[in-house]
Structures are given as C-alpha cells and as structure tokens.
Amino acid sequence: MTLHNGKLLALCVVTVIVLFGLQFVLPPYLTLALTRILILSVFAMGYNMLMGYTGLLSLGHAMFFAAGLYAAGLSTYYWGVTLPVAFVLGIVGAFAVSLVIGLLALRTQAVSFMIVTLMFAQAGYLMTLQFTNITGGDQGLTLPTDARSFGLFGMVVDMTSDTARFNLALLIFTVVLAVLFAITQGPLGRLFVAVRENEPRTQMLGFDTYAIKLTAFTVSGTISGTAGALYGLMFGYIGSSFAGFQNSIEALLYTLIGGPGTLLGPLLGTAVMTMLIDRLSGITTAYLIVIGVLLIVVNLWFPKGILGTIRDRWLGWLK
C-alpha cells in the first residue's frame, strides 16, 4: 500500500501517543473520564462515517450502539460467555442490525431517511422496555462479578481496574482509528464523499450508489456497536437509556462540534462536549438545554465544526 495523506497519519500517531501518555499525568478520575471519552468517540467516529463522510444524517445511531451493548452484555449475563467472546458477539450483533436497517432505510432519502432511522431506533428503544424481563428495562442489568475480568495470553485483565480499562479503550480506539484511516483516505472513502457531494453524478460514473451507501451504513453501525459493546462490558452495566433518542443526538452533536467528515473531529467533539456536560451537570440538572442550544447554534453558525473549519481555512489535509 502506498502512503497517502502522511500528515494526517502522523497526526493520528501523535494523538494516540499523547493519549497513552496522559494516563501517567492525569489524576485517576480524569483517566476514567478519558476512558469514557475514548469509547464515546468510537461511537461518534462510527456516526461520522455515515453523516460526515457519506452525508447521510441518521437520527437513530443509538440503535446500533445499543445493539452492540445488548448483544455483548446479554450474552455474558445469561450465557456466561467470556468477555472477548461477548465483545465479538456485540460487534456481530451490531453488524447484523445495521445491515438490515440499512437495506430498508436506504430506500429513502434526506428527511425520510432521518425519520425512518429515528423510528427504527425508537422501536428498538421501546423493545428494550417491552422485554424488561430480559433486558432489565430502565433499571438495566449489572453484570455479575465473574463477568468483570477475563484471561488473555495468561494475564488476567480486570474490568474494575482503571488502568486496564483505559488501556483497553485506547487499544480499541486505536484499531478503529486505523481502520477508519484506511477506509476514508483511500478509494472507498472517496466514493463515500462522492455520494455525499453528488449522488446522481456518481451513479453516472458507473457506481452502484445504493451499495456504496449500504457499505458506509454498515461500517458506521458496526463501529457504533463496537463502542456499545465495549461500554457495556467495561462498565458492567446495560440499560435502556443507551438505546434512547438522546444517545443518538449526542453522537450527532459530538460529530457536529468536532467537525463532520474529519477523522479526528469526533474525538475532539466528544472530549469538548463530555467535559462541558460534566461541568454543567454539577450546576444544573437541565444541562440538556445546552445540547438544545448547541444543536441550533452549531447548525446556524458553525456547521463545519472545529476541525472542519480549520480544514477549510488552513489545513486541507485534515479530512
């Protein structure tokens, strides 16, 4: 493979190294916060694949996050499978759900697409409530102690240890970042952007745009589900709220703030937003109002987000 966009690659490498180093300087509670940020930014990176690069605005990505969360969490809760197996099952579950939903939702466009993804996700959320005897509903389920650690190459990885969690989250984040770099900076990513910029033209250049969109949709949903599986297994809790509307909106907002269609935007957006929300929820319970205001403000005056603005003004390679 030839190297292209070496600058972005270098920036990604530096970012990962800095993140790794942070655990040695940050106090424990911030390391924990950073662990959450890493996992949620994997969620947002998945979202960005579809919304940022391919231009398809989904309002239902909580459904894929939850698919990963529940597939992983329930399989370890009820069948006692080990955490790595549960993690893989979570990814497979999210893949299956996103493929099926994609096949259906991609028959629609624009506003219809948004409503269809919203409705499917809402149906998924309601199902987690409907089958409370299995899912634990709103209360959720706490994973048993023997599902909080696993053996790997003779080592025991303990999911209640902050260090283990942080480094595992960073590992998954790095793998996803590498995969997304390969996709977005190569020929496939170019097709995603081509569909976003001008779908009819892309068709007339000989591409099956439905297949391209379905690919983007499935990759996006699967990555979001990977984040969900990781979140559930790492913090040992699965609950309906992860399937709710607000979770979808947060992925949208993180992506919008960081910069849709930029590789590192979701990480930045997630970091900025989770810090902000953490601060605010200390002051007021109505921090949701900030989400509302930001959705409007960003949409009005800052649609490219932080990195998107920097890309358009100064650094063209930041994509």
Binding site: R190, E197, N198, P200, R201, T202, L205, G206, D208
Partner: peptide, 29 residues
C-alpha cells in the same frame, strides 16, 4: 451504473461535477 460499466459514458448538458473537490479528485472517481 451497469451501462456505464459496459462502456456507455455520459456527460451532462448542464455541468454536473463535484464542485467542492479538486480537478484531480473529480477525474479520479
């Protein structure tokens, strides 16, 4: 899109390009 694959290329009467991309990227697609 399958006809294009078979060898029928079509250029639009009203210019229809990827306005935000570079010339090279347009042709690369």
């Amino acid at each position: 899109h399958k006809r294009v694959r078979m060898g029928i290329a079509y250029t639009f009467q009203i210019t229809n390009i990827y306005g935000a991309m570079t010339v090279l990227e347009n042709i690369a697609i």
